[in-house]
Simulated scan of single mutants.
Amino acid sequence: MLAKVASLGVLGIEAYPIEVECNVVRGLRYLAIVGLPDAAVKESAERVQAAIGNRQYRWPRGHITINLAPADTRKEGPAYDLPIAVGLLAADEQIEATHLADFAMVGELALDGTVRPVKGVLPMALAARDAAVGGFIVPEANAAEAAVVDGLKVYPVRTLDDALGLVTERLSLEPKQVDIASVLAQTARYEVDFADVKGQEHAKRALTVAAAGHHNVLMIGPPGSGKTMLAKRLPTILPPLTVEEALEVTKIHSVAGELPAGQALVATRPFRDPHHTASTPALVGGGSYPRPGELSLAHKGVLFLDELPEFNRATLETLRQPIESGSITVSRALMSVKFPAEVLMATSMNPCPCGNLGDATRECRCTVGQIRSYMARVSGPLLDRIDIHIE
């Protein structure tokens, strides 16, 4: 028998509908998962088999084919465990899933049948609403994140039994509800405050202008002069996130797995400070299956590059185009993914290799040639994109 379960996948930061087709027929025992699955999807057979058995159901006998449509798009991650399990039990006629077509579902299954959280639930919820599904079944830890989408019924489940109860009408659950405006107001708090800074009037004035006009800024000074302290407090003087901006930022963090379990929204301006050894894919995004990098994770917030000359020069050069355009396109042989990257870039550097140039208490021993070589590590075109220089 054939059973079809609606699910969703993520490409970039956008989601698209996926139909999980499970077919069970008589014949030699055999299992095939098709539709360009990655290793995690292929391994789902072992997780699903253990979960079904530990929930007192029977693994279907015979020839099993699981198709993830559309078949020409690569599928990755464990989010299809739950729809595969429900589809197999429906195809084997162990449950009477009268309302299976009314739901879309995602979730990773533990071996005991509990449902674990997955990445990218917010963009999936937005796509589910656009597809006009009757209800969206998600892991309990992802429910708050999905429930911020207005006009979508979100049903949190803890176990495989809960999901089966919903599609068979054996269980009645109330949809999760979240007031997005109140969540945004209650969680929009920073751990630091620009008002904490005493003195540094010249630097504070420059950063205030940078925040007001959304100008990129470079701070040059010896170690201990407060460059990092000021940069960390820069997001606190930016305007509060609007609801639309918070949803856009949360989508990126959800896809990257950076959203803590149970948290509904990223309510404050992001602040990202990658180490100077970060690779190009880590900074701007990439990988065989493109993921957002630090640049996109700082979208609508501050990207702070400390010790700017210590970054790989080729890595820094990749920032030139997205800083101006506000987006970064990662192209691969089979796909091209566009990530948003509207950031205020704050950078800092020492005035010389030893860092003591201009310090009244420590002597600088760098030669003129060493200082010029150090400053030349940052290209002119990149410096041209930094509007405010503070010394």
Rank of each mutant, 00 (worst) to 15 (best):
E46D: 15
E46S: 14
R47W: 02
R47T: 09
R47L: 07
V48K: 05
V48D: 00
Q49C: 10
A50R: 10
A51F: 12
I52L: 11
R55D: 04
Q56I: 00
Q56C: 07
R58P: 00
W59I: 11
W59C: 01
I64F: 08
I64C: 09
I64K: 09
P70H: 03
P70S: 01
P70N: 07
P70L: 00
A71Q: 07
A71E: 02
A71I: 02
D72R: 11
R74A: 07
R74H: 12
K75A: 02
K75N: 04
E76P: 00
E76V: 11
G77E: 04
G77H: 05
G77N: 05
P78Q: 12
P78V: 10
P78T: 15
A79Q: 14
Y80S: 02
Y80H: 08
D81C: 09
L82G: 01
I84T: 02
A85G: 06
G87W: 04
L89E: 06
A90S: 15
A90E: 09
A91G: 05
A91N: 01
I95W: 09
E96I: 13
E96A: 15
A97I: 05
A97V: 03
A97F: 03
L100T: 07
A101E: 14
D102C: 07
D102F: 11
F103E: 01
